[in-house]
Write a protein that binds this DNA or RNA. Structure first.
Length: 558
DNA sequence: GTAGGGTTAG
């Protein structure tokens, strides 16, 4: 910022401070500086009597990241003022659109103005379509491009990954390399690392790390941070720690990635220790760091430590807690069974509780069998967002937990009336470089019969050592025997049975699941890890469960 | 003066 002030002072001194060219230069300087100088950029912009295309472009660009809606309002202002956009304008406008997940109607405008054949614009379109979930549109733009650069490939790779097509993202990266015309750079490798993180496929994770060292790319802090995060998401927190230890330089994102990793792997005390160590190294935590530490505390049952961290956000760091921090505290109290305190906290929060906060409270009610409270909380959720299948499942679990089958059936009826269906559970497992998918209630796997047979025999064996199927959470009011078989074919059980059939050695079994693991599967896995002498790692929607020798890393606190 | 990337509560 200093050089901008100096520049401004010099302009004032020489009497050029109102000269359009001087103002343009000044505008460009502060727009390219830190976000803190944006208000200064706006005041310079306001001094320009008749902003031209260049000035509009500069100010739109400056706000595209941090206040995208302001960028779009500037774009409208530009159009109203009759200032023509050029091929620089649209990449900036599209960036703002991508952040807001909007602006799909821009395509026809750029087509009309003849900018649709510009590579920068096309890349921007891929990015926008990707962020809005319109994968097909993004792919059409991508495939029809006469020439693609690195940004086209990385935008399309990210687009696949963010929309749940991780393996397609990887395939596209292979296709890019086979084409041989573009050489991967740091950013594109980061897109690939991110795709692998979403997939949680450790084999691929190891491969990309090897790729990076072979590629001759500089091992930057960003790449290291991405690997720390990736290994944790692939279920291997030890590898995250190894990468972290080997990094010569780290920043707040690196520390935060490790803290989050430790938190989701149930290593709460270590996460908290890293948080304090990070401060000793002189790094200032940000909002994301606090979220990670609070998650660690809530999952580790560290109530007073978590509360202390939460209070420190405002008292020690002078920052305003975000909704996610309040959410973490609700979880912290709720998980520990302090439901009254959690409710009081929600009532007194200075921000309006959102549906996630209520949902967190609902989860706590289920875990601790607070039925009346659960009903009230569900009503709160209905006011905000009533079509979330998971809430009905949770409420149904509260009734099931105490054997109130009639109410449980009532929940099922109201789901039917509202045409809400429970999202099927789905588990993925990598066996000999092939991904196998198991979906609850689906027998499409080519070896389904033998897997089913083996699973039935597994259940029999585990029952001998104390496993009792817990049918209270089965959603439907069906016969007891049928409830047991519904449970038996939960996707993670099928995946683990399949792994035991395939892996004759004692290697760790790693499963990725789309939903939270249920109590029954959790209990099944603990026994299975003991009887079959295997480590089983399951990544569910939020966390990792490491089953070994009959117990789980979450210490059943989830 | 252009676009793609690393950490975010249930």
């Amino acid at each position: 910022m200093n050089h901008i002030y100096k520049l401004h002072a010099r302009l004032l001194k020489t009497g050029h401070h109102n000269h359009p060219l001087a103002l343009r230069r000044l505008l460009l300087s502060c727009s390219a500086s830190a976000p803190a100088s944006l208000s200064y950029a706006r005041s310079i912009f306001d001094l320009i009597a008749f902003p031209d295309t260049f000035s509009f472009n500069t100010i739109i660009r400056a706000h595209a990241d941090s206040s995208p809606s302001f960028s779009l309002s500037l774009f409208s202002k530009m159009r109203m003022a009759g200032v023509s956009p050029d091929h620089f304008t649209f990449p900036f406008v599209l960036k703002a659109c991508a952040r807001l997940q909007t602006g799909l109607d821009l395509h026809s405008l750029l087509f009309k103005l003849g900018f649709d054949s510009d590579v920068y614009v096309q890349n921007g379109l891929i990015h926008v379509y990707g962020c809005c979930g319109f994968l097909d549109f993004a792919l059409t733009v991508f495939e029809e491009m006469p020439e693609r650069d690195l940004v086209s490939w990385s935008s399309m790779i990210t687009c696949f990954a963010k929309n749940g097509f991780g393996y397609e993202a990887l395939a596209l990266f292979q296709r890019m390399q086979l084409g041989g015309t573009v050489k991967p750079d740091e950013v594109i490798v980061l897109s690939v690392v991110s795709a692998i993180s979403i997939l949680g496929d450790l084999e691929l994770g190891k491969w990309i790390r090897g790729f990076i060292s072979r590629s001759g790319l500089e091992f930057t802090v960003s790449l290291g941070t991405a690997l720390v995060d990736m290994f944790s998401r692939c279920g291997c927190i030890e590898e995250s720690m190894r990468v972290f230890d080997e990094m010569g330089e780290r920043n707040v994102l690196t520390w935060t990635a490790l803290i989050n990793g430790l938190a989701v792997h149930g290593r709460s005390a270590e996460a908290l220790r890293m948080f304090y160590e990070m401060r000793n190294h002189g790094f200032q935590p940000d909002h994301v760091t606090f979220t990670g530490v609070l998650v660690a505390c809530s999952h580790g049952g560290l109530v007073s430590e978590g509360w202390h961290v939460f209070e420190s956000i405002r008292n020690e760091y002078g920052m305003e807690p975000l909704p996610e921090h309040y959410g973490c505290v609700v979880d912290l109290l709720g998980r520990a069974g302090l439901l009254k305190e959690a409710c009081k906290f929600v009532e007194r929060m200075p921000i309006r509780p959102n549906s996630i906060i209520w949902r967190t409270l609902l989860g706590a009610c289920v875990n601790h069998n607070y039925i009346e409270l659960a009903e009230k909380v569900k009503e709160k959720i209905n006011e905000l967002d009533s079509y979330h299948d998971g809430d009905y499942v949770l409420l149904s679990n509260v009734y099931g937990g105490v054997g109130r089958w009639a109410e449980k059936a009532g929940v099922r009826n109201s789901m039917r009336e509202k045409r809400i269906s429970k999202k099927p559970g789905c588990s993925l497992i990598n066996v000999n470089h092939l991904i196998h998918e198991f979906v609850a209630g689906d027998n499409n796997h080519p070896q389904f019969e033998s897997i089913r047979e083996f699973l039935v025999s597994m259940i029999d064996i585990l029952k001998v050592v104390g496993y009792t199927p817990d049918i209270s959470n089965v959603l439907f009011d069906i016969e007891e025997e049928e409830k047991e078989s519904t449970l038996a074919y939960h996707s993670e059980k099928l995946a683990v049975a399949f792994a035991l059939l395939c892996f004759k050695d004692r290697r760790t079994i790693r499963v990725m699941k789309n939903l939270r693991i249920c109590h029954d599967c959790h209990c099944f896995m603990k026994h299975a890890s003991d009887v079959f002498e295997r480590e089983i790692i399951i990544r569910d929607r939020n966390h990792f469960h490491h089953f070994s020798k009959g117990s789980c890393s979450c210490r059943d606190y989830w």
